[in-house]
């Protein structure tokens, strides 16, 4: 047997799950797709006394477009479903674009949206995209529910704003504004490996084709999704192009705080940040021009 012994509970409803989480407190761990928790248990790094399996609960697996154009997704929605859902591709293209980079197809068949966010691995794609796309997270506890902005949700390595006993139940991505372009890029040794560095970028152009806002959120560049705010702010009012993007890239690589690992030194991660920022902004600008009443490609 790989994992140490634990008590296994598989409630049928969210209410039951919340009761069990409250009853067992810090002893209990919720089990979503299990693609990070089970390996940690196999290594005995994680040794929860109680496992509350959320897989028997119906009603936490959905992708729904709301009237205002935002996209609501249940926490137990499988990553493979996000990858192929046409609403995701249309409404949250950044999320759609990152999905093939999330581990391997076999992992995405089990892995869930909520599980990946709640796990809060700094090297994971979904937290970075949730921050860059300003997702809101609905958490439910035995005493009620609350909404948490993705930016506030991630609080450090494997640490979130969830209180003990609270479960992440839904993620809502707001509709993309006109004039916004996006890009997700990462560099990994092999397809599906943890990336050495990644970026989720968005760039907004105004009616004159000038940069009006930008977000640059980095993956595996610190203890969570790392946003380069100053680099992004510096783009405002600039003509989109190689010069502005080069400046932003130079600023961004200084703002991040990569830790280095066996595959990439800190210096190499900073180099990747420079290159990926430049490339991501160029792609985002191109898409922004195609998304709204803006000058056609090549005009700027």
């Amino acid at each position: 047997m790989k994992p140490p012994p634990f008590k296994y509970l598989a409630p049928d409803s969210l209410e039951q799950a919340l009761e069990l989480m409250a009853q067992y407190g810090g002893e209990a761990k919720p089990l979503a797709g299990g693609q990070s928790l089970i390996p940690a248990m196999n290594f005995r790094v994680a040794q929860p006394a109680v496992l509350v399996d959320l897989n028997r609960i119906t009603g936490l697996e959905y992708i729904k477009t709301a009237e205002d154009g935002s996209l609501a997704m249940g926490a137990m929605t499988r990553q493979r479903d996000l990858e192929f859902d046409p609403q995701v591709a249309e409404r949250v293209p950044l999320l759609h674009e990152c999905m093939p980079h999330v581990a391997h197809p076999q992992i995405r068949n089990r892995g869930t949206l909520g599980g990946s966010l709640a796990h809060a691995d700094p090297a994971a794609e979904l937290p970075v995209v949730a921050v860059a796309a300003s997702a809101r997270i609905r958490a439910q506890g035995s005493r009620g529910e609350r909404w948490i902005e993705a930016e506030q949700f991630f609080q450090g390595m494997f640490t979130t704003a969830l209180e003990p006993g609270e479960l992440l139940v839904e993620v809502v991505f707001p509709p993309a504004e006109p004039g916004i372009g996006w890009s997700f890029l990462e560099v990994s040794r092999r397809r599906g490996d943890y990336a050495m560095l990644g970026i989720a970028a968005s760039l907004s152009l105004n009616a004159q084709g000038v940069c009006s806002a930008a977000r640059l959120v980095f993956m595996n560049a610190g203890d969570g999704p790392i946003e380069a705010r100053q680099a992004a702010a510096g783009l405002s009012g600039q003509q989109p192009g190689p010069e502005a993007f080069e400046q932003a890239a130079a600023a961004a690589q200084q703002e991040i705080d990569p830790l280095g690992n066996v595959h990439a030194t800190v210096a190499y991660q900073r180099h990747l940040a420079t290159v990926l920022t430049r490339r991501a902004l160029a792609i985002a600008a191109e898409r922004a021009r195609g998304n709204g009443n803006l000058p056609a490609a090549g005009a700027a």
């Binding site: 598989a10 390996p39 897989n55 391997h104």
Partner: peptide
């Protein structure tokens, strides 16, 4: 590897390939 990296344990679960080392039998 028994931690989801090598893929040797892949089976089909309800028709979809999954890592059988990353699921509990009770599931």
């Amino acid at each position: 590897c028994e931690h989801g990296v090598c893929g040797a344990c892949t089976v089909q679960f309800d028709g979809q390939p999954v890592r059988s080392c990353l699921m509990l039998a009770v599931q």
